[in-house]
């Protein structure tokens, strides 16, 4: 039962990802990405980390993708469809194939996963919170600092263009 749900959700995620890469209309590509994000959230839930799944949906599908779609709409890119040169296309496909080969090799060479029973608390909010505050506090704060720097930089650059 779980396996079939997994396949269904994974298929949707896969379709969304394909749509993101191959659809010529940037708006539809963005929406496909949102679909992939939601499906990914569902995958987290299948892995018994429901709140991570919910956060995935709230933050990525509900906020980040809305922002991206907003920018696509505001720039009027939705109507144009970007022209791409032949070299760009070829380079993209070569890179994609190389990446695919690498990914397949990594999966092929990986040791078969050792299934271990996890305790009931696995994936609970308490456990997650404890880990975040005790073990990963410094990396987490560093990541937020990086994001803050990026934001300040974006504002500075935008102001320069404005003036």
């Amino acid at each position: 039962m779980m396996l079939w749900i997994f396949f269904a959700v994974a298929f949707v995620a896969f379709l969304g990802a394909l749509g993101l890469v191959f659809h010529s209309n940037p708006m539809v590509a963005g929406l496909c990405m949102a679909v992939a994000m939601v499906a990914q959230g569902c995958l987290y839930m299948l892995l018994h980390v429901p709140f991570l799944g919910f956060f995935q949906i709230i933050i990525y599908a509900g906020a980040v993708m809305v922002m991206a779609v907003f920018i696509i709409m505001a720039h009027g890119m939705a109507e144009q469809g970007q022209e791409v040169s032949l070299t760009q296309t070829v380079a993209t496909y070569v890179a994609a194939v190389l990446f695919l080969v690498q990914a397949l090799r990594a999966v092929w060479n990986a040791a078969p996963p050792a299934f271990t029973e996890v305790d009931r608390a696995f994936g609970s909010l308490q456990q997650f919170g404890n880990l975040l505050v005790e073990h990963y506090a410094v990396p987490f704060e560093l990541a937020s600092l990086v994001l803050l720097t990026a934001m300040v930089g974006a504002v500075v650059m935008a102001r320069r263009i404005w003036e």
Binding site: M27, L31, A34, V38, G41, P50, F51, F54, F55, I57, I58, A61, G62, A63, V66, V69, F70, M73, A78, L125
Partner: peptide, 23 residues
């Protein structure tokens, strides 16, 4: 036991109706 999160995540998707319909 995560009802509120579920509710927030679903209602954050409701905006897509407006965006898709408008676009």
């Amino acid at each position: 036991d995560l009802g509120l999160l579920f509710l927030l995540s679903i209602s954050s998707l409701a905006i897509y109706g407006i965006i898709l319909g408008g676009w």
